[in-house]
Every structure is written in C-alpha cells, then in structure tokens.
Amino acid sequence: MPHKLEVDSVRYRIGERQLLTDVYLSCATGEIVSLLGRNGCGKSTLLQIIFGTRHTDDKHICIDGNVYQAPYKVPGQLAYLPQHNFLPQDSKLDKIVNLYLPDPARRAAVKRDERVQPHLIKHAHELSKGEQRYFSLLLLLQLDVKFLLLDEPFSGIEPLYVSQIQELLLAHLPSKGFIITDHQYQSVLEISHRIILLADGICRPITHREELE
C-alpha cells in the first residue's frame, strides 16, 4: 500500500535568523525527493524537524493522514540517516546487526552483502568513513519504516560505492519513500524523481535542471 508524507507550515528560527519560513514538502512511497540548497540553508534542520528530534512549535507533519509531533517515536514511520556516523563505535558489525534487526531474514540480507561480509568481525571504528556510511544505510534500509530521510548519504563515499548505494535505494523504492539531501548533486539527481530547492527558508520545486545553475 502506498504511503504519503506531508510536511507543511514548518517555521524555524535560530536567534534573529528565520531559517525556515513556511516550508511545504511531500513524499510518497516509490518516490525519491532530493532536497538541495546551499550550506547552512537549513536542509539538515528540516530533516531533523520532520524526524522529530529538533523541536519547533510551527510544524505540521502528516503521514497517511495522521498528524505526528515526533514521528520517530512511533514505530514503523520514519528513519533518519544523520550527517555524522551514529554507529556504536566499540561494537562489532555482527553484533550491531543482531541488535538492530530482530528479523533473521533482514539480518541475513545485511550480513550477506558482499561489501559488509568481510567486515562483520570488525568494530565500527575500524571501518573507513565510506564503509561506515554504506553499512549504516544498509541497516536503515532493512528497518520496517515508510520513509527514509537521508542526510548526505554519498558524503565521503568512494565512486564505487555511489552506484551501489543508488542501486540499493532503487531496489527499496516499492516499499519506501526517500527524501535525500547531498552536496554531490549529480549522484542524487541521477536517481531523483523530484527536485526541491531550499532557499531563503522556503522550498521551491525545480522542474528544469538548468534552474539549479
């Protein structure tokens, strides 16, 4: 069954600066929405507000018609890949997979990945940034959630992993919707269905890629 995420009337102020001004954004199952914008324009802040870990009084987050104040607290709704690594650094990957995914089939799906398999006995801190990023994404993709918010999934990733990650996202499209921000525009644009530009606190749909130049 397709799901719909709608984010409306998001306003957020940092000190004297109005970072987000009446933002509207939507995403549906099977859709990759890329959220682009300059450094410091509020992309990560917006994703955290949608996820529910950053507070603002002015927001309306609606999934399948139900309004949520902090969607992350309700199982099965959203998952968020933050910019910085969130894995427990002193745990082995094998243990992390077992701890994170109760379903044996989903565990197996992660463990049999050819890029993860050789590292299962390693601690998270022993992996390169790109390997950690890939593993984190693989874990989140196996979560039973409707939407995934990805904050710079291609950051620090070697070119070989980029196409692998793109393939992974496309493979999970039938069951999930994605909102992605990244500075590597090309990697995101290649797989996006819709492009949204966040500038001056508002979201503007981009219909022609030339508008980004």
Partner: peptide, 15 residues
C-alpha cells in the same frame, strides 16, 4: 563523546 549515537536508538523509536 557519542551524542550522535543517540540516533542509533532514535531510529528504533527510543527517545
């Protein structure tokens, strides 16, 4: 030292 690690738990709906 590990404030970002809270996201490990947030993604499992633990505040």
């Amino acid at each position: 030292r590990h404030s970002n690690q809270y996201y490990f738990y947030y993604n499992q709906s633990l505040s």
